[in-house]
Simulated assay, not measured.
Amino acid sequence: MAAYWKQLDTRFPQVAAVFDDLMAEALAELTREGLDAYLEAGRVIGKLGRGVEPMLAFMEEWPSTAKAVGEAALPAVMALVQRLQKSPNGSAITPFLETLAPVARRLHSQEQLQRYLDITLDLKARTTGSIHGHHTTFPSPGLPDFLAQAPNLLNQLTLAGLKNWVEYGIRNYRTHPERQKDYFSLQSADARAVLQRERHGTLLVDVERKLDLYLRGLWQDGDQLVPFST
């Protein structure tokens, strides 16, 4: 463990206190290459200057995220972290990382996760404040709330439905910070009404295991079921 701790290169006592437990899960879930990438990403996040919370969130959430969508998704996740860090939205890094694993478990694939990341980036870009449309000066009011609510939203919506729900919030509340926060935190009647409108049928993730068993049992078909937009 000492070599792994040296590789992580942090002095946060909160991380040290749980490091053995974190590594036990990481060693069980990640490949050797994935473990190196995990520790390097944790090191980078720990040196963003945003305290221990984002580092702890990543260290806790990534192994189960990788199990759900694959280790190859890490560069895209880190790219979004860096985009947030270089914008006024650095405070959204922690809620993004804290909800990453439950989001990944709902989406099940790297491609689906990338679509979620794209929705997040679009929300960030279109609701971050600017002067004369040029210099960004204040953070997106609704982005942290959206990220905190993402697992709940994806329990009820497809990615297409989520995109429509986000689009409604941007279109109607882009220039109204408080109302935007109420919408993306699901506090407003509008948010709940649009959520209800976008709910259609049954989500694949909720019946995927049963369908997989049918395919294997009846037709000896082991192909993975993948959702797609129509």
Rank of each mutant, 00 (worst) to 15 (best):
L143T: 03
A16W: 11
F228E: 13
A66P: 02
L203G: 01
L143P: 01
S130C: 08
E40H: 08
L213V: 13
T10I: 03
V18T: 13
L27T: 06
L48V: 04
L30V: 03
E111A: 15
P95M: 02
K67N: 09
G51W: 09
D221N: 15
L157H: 06
Q114R: 15
V18S: 12
L218G: 10
P95R: 00
I119P: 01
R179P: 03
L35V: 06
D223K: 14
G42T: 03
L143E: 02
A26K: 01
E167V: 08
D182A: 15
T99E: 02
G46H: 01
L30H: 00
Q7S: 11
I170Q: 11
L123I: 09
F228R: 11
Q7L: 12
L162S: 00
N155M: 05
T137N: 12
T99F: 00
F228P: 00
H176W: 07
F184S: 02
Q14C: 07
Q187S: 10
Y168I: 10
I131N: 11
T230G: 13
P75S: 09
E167G: 10
S130E: 11
R174L: 04
Q14G: 09
Q110K: 15
L154G: 01
L56C: 05
P139L: 05
L48S: 02
Q149T: 06
L97A: 00
N164K: 14
Q110C: 11
T136Y: 11
E29L: 10
T31F: 07
T65E: 05
R174Q: 12
T175Y: 13
A191L: 05
S91F: 05
V18P: 04
A150T: 07
L56K: 03
P54K: 00
P177S: 11
S109E: 07
A41L: 07
Q82E: 13
G142I: 09
P13S: 10
G222H: 13
V226K: 10
T128H: 05
V44F: 09
V194F: 10
E208I: 15
V52P: 04
